[in-house]
Amino acid sequence: MTLLSVEGLTIDLPGTQPGLVEDVTFEVNEGRCTALIGESGCGKSLTSLAVLGLLPPSVRVSAGAVVFDGVDLLTCSPRQLRKIRGGPVGMVFQEPMSSLNPSMTVGDQIAEARRLHLGEGRKVALARAKDLLDRVGIPNAARRLAAYPHEMSGGMQQRVMIAAAIACDPRLIIADEPTTALDVTIQAEILSLLRDLQRDLGLAVLLVTHDLGVVADFCDDVVVMYAGHIAERTGVDDLFYRPAHPYSAALLAAVPQAGQSRSRLTVIPGRVPTAGAFPPGCRFGPRCAHFTAPECARPQPHGRTRCGRVASGDLVLEGALHG
């Protein structure tokens, strides 16, 4: 069952780049995890922020719909949107240190959503916050309620953030690179916590990441974004066995292989074009090993893949895994 569906979402940077994010369509199903992947600057975070209407004032959604549980979040009233934020949809951000309020105890920050959405008093909400801290694996929960974010490690802060996001028993968690700012060992802990919560609470998760290992571990569906376009939408197995866009294949090839020591690291030449300098036709074209004029200089098809050559059967890509 589709819980969240993003349809034709287009975000403009007025004056510089129309179509900063263009015609993005994907779905998140009940209880499943959808990954939104791509290099930095591909519009993943913007897309995830647009879902709850949290875009910075300098950018603007110009078209599309974001339907959550039958309600279009882009056109609903601010009041209705506020009820969904922190209620049925929780959000976890990238840098826990700067994303938690430095002058508010973690207990109050976790309790906040319950006070706002369920009208609980401070005491009741704090008691529930203690349970939530227990749930996300913070020892000494009762004492930690009165701590401030700066008194905790990055991993603990991210657990607090997750506790706050699940405070009102949401159905969907949007996690915007929840582990990027953390140590590698802590990353694994946070991810396994998210996976446990997803399983136990039946959460749907929209996970923004650029870590393909996380995708393989954790996700069911994958949306690959490049320069504001969706390069391809696929299942996690298909991504690794049968990528349908040269960008996906290039991302897979760029992952170092543990089995092959001292092999050359593969990189994608060039960099993501900046806003205002997107090429016509295929936006990945200038960096693509399979670029062929004139097909690739023309607008590319919409659908499962945004590569005309793959769609027409002209190009067959190799996956990272075979079988």
């Binding site: 959000m91 994303s99 938690l100 508010m104």
Partner: peptide, 26 residues
């Protein structure tokens, strides 16, 4: 412009609640 204001908004905070609890003190 701080990220924690966005977090608070993502939690459903707005208006006077957001100003009193998240903005003024900081």
């Amino acid at each position: 412009t701080r990220p924690y204001i966005r977090t608070a908004r993502a939690r459903g905070a707005s208006g006077g609640w957001l100003v009193r609890r998240h903005i003024l003190r900081n």
